[in-house]
Computed example of a mutant assay.
Amino acid sequence: MSVAAGGTELSRRRDAADHRARVETERGIHRYRTLALFAGAAQGLIYPADRAVMVWATLGALAVSVVAARWAMARHPGPTAIRRLGALTMGFDVMLIALFLANALRDPTDPIQMLPLFLAAEGAVRWGRIGGMATGAAAGVMAATWSVVVHARQDIVQPLAFVTFRVVAVVIIGSLLGSTVSAVRRQRRLADMVCNASSDLIVSFDLHGTVRTVNPACEAILGYTQDELIGTDRAELVLGEDKPDGPPDLESLRRLGSRHVELQFTHKAGHSVWLELDLQPDLQEGFVYAIGRDVSARRQTEAGAPPPRRPRRAHRGRQPGAPGGASGARAARAPAHLPALRRPRWVQGRQRQPRPPGR
């Protein structure tokens, strides 16, 4: 593979990893939006705010958006589609929280004024530090506006310092969350780049033995693509007496910790492959990580005959062909299966006769 082709392949793998991370982020956000729907329904039964019809209409709109977002995610959207989905969802959530705030304008101490913080958190998770600052500013303005309106309905004038403090506080919270998310993403991108560029097999499986992640080197080493291996049991491809007969032994993982093993695996083409594996359990996260190197060539060499010894070098002062000389040593130490080397004529006794005088 040329340098240009290799760089293009690494770029393609990096873009694919970024897209997978963005998809996982959207899925996580929509899981929490589903939880927010049920929590809002329970809260609406307990406290309907100013108008109960307004609460349930807003929750109905949230339910429709949750179902629509899940349907869109199930269609495996591309990079452009996933960005549009995130922007539309963010705009819809801003509208929903504005409706919730507009339906609770009687009590200045109403905890509903904390809802804009969820917007700042959502923007930070979705777009990092810049997103946290932008959505934090919007959420701070919403919270400050709600506070001014509610206090004005009570004939209370809020000082300007109180209003600006709300805006600045929410912006700082959004920026802090976004900076943390951006740092985590940088570390993850670096790990993905190293993992995707590695020629070694890098795989993780959970404590049930199910493969969760694997790098592209699996296709070169085992013949299987990433999609074919993810979700399978890690024992399906192991051969021999070391084949696991169940999920990983937690007690053994705690006692032994990191391990270095060599196992025989089945290649997709049918032949066997020996892998030297470094196992690193992470019981707190519930995963076991493995880095494997193909040592099939070394195994075959160890199983075969040892290579012949290299002959010693002859002493420089000895004549070629003499006993112990260079040619004699090579002839004496030549393996039996090699053909005999041609020797010079004078060694075979066919020395030239001296010329008569005068010729």
Rank of each mutant, 00 (worst) to 15 (best):
M1I: 08
A4S: 08
G7V: 09
S11T: 14
R13F: 11
R14C: 13
A16M: 04
A16L: 11
D18Y: 06
D18T: 10
R22K: 11
E26D: 11
G28S: 13
H30P: 02
R31K: 07
Y32V: 09
T34W: 11
L35A: 14
L37T: 06
F38C: 10
A42D: 11
Y47G: 05
D50Y: 05
V53R: 13
V55G: 10
T58H: 14
V67C: 08
V67G: 05
A68P: 00
R70C: 06
W71I: 15
M73S: 08
A74T: 15
R84D: 04
A87S: 08
A87C: 05
G91W: 04
G91I: 03
D93E: 13
V94H: 00
V94E: 00
M95N: 08
A98Y: 10
A102E: 04
N103R: 07
L105K: 09
R106A: 14
P108N: 11
T109E: 13
Q113V: 15
Q113Y: 07
P116T: 08
L117R: 01
L119G: 04
G123M: 01
A124K: 00
R126P: 00
G131S: 01
M133R: 06
G140Y: 03
M142Y: 00
A143C: 05
A144D: 04
S147Y: 10
V148C: 06
V148E: 06
D155C: 04
Q158T: 01
T164L: 12
F165G: 07
F165Y: 08
R166W: 02
A169L: 14
V171G: 01
S175H: 07
S175Y: 08
L177W: 00
T180F: 03
T180N: 03
V184H: 10
R185H: 01
R188Y: 02
D192N: 14
D192H: 10
M193H: 00
L201G: 02
I202N: 05
I202K: 02
G209H: 07
N215C: 09
C218P: 12
C218D: 09
Y224P: 03
E228I: 02
L237E: 13
E241P: 12
P247T: 00
D249C: 04
E251A: 03
S252G: 14
S258G: 06
R259C: 01
R259W: 00
E262R: 04
L263R: 07
Q264H: 03
K268S: 09
S272P: 15
W274G: 01
L279T: 02
D282Q: 07
L283A: 13
L283T: 13
F287N: 07
S296Q: 00
R298S: 06
A303H: 12
G304V: 07
G304Y: 03
P306R: 04
P308C: 06
R309Y: 09
R310V: 11
R312I: 00
R313I: 03
A314Q: 11
A314F: 10
H315C: 09
G317P: 06
R318A: 08
G325A: 06
S327Y: 08
R330D: 05
R333M: 03
R333A: 07
R345C: 05
G349Q: 05
R352K: 10
R352L: 14
Q353K: 11
P354C: 07
P354R: 15
R355H: 09
R355V: 09
P357L: 13
R359H: 12
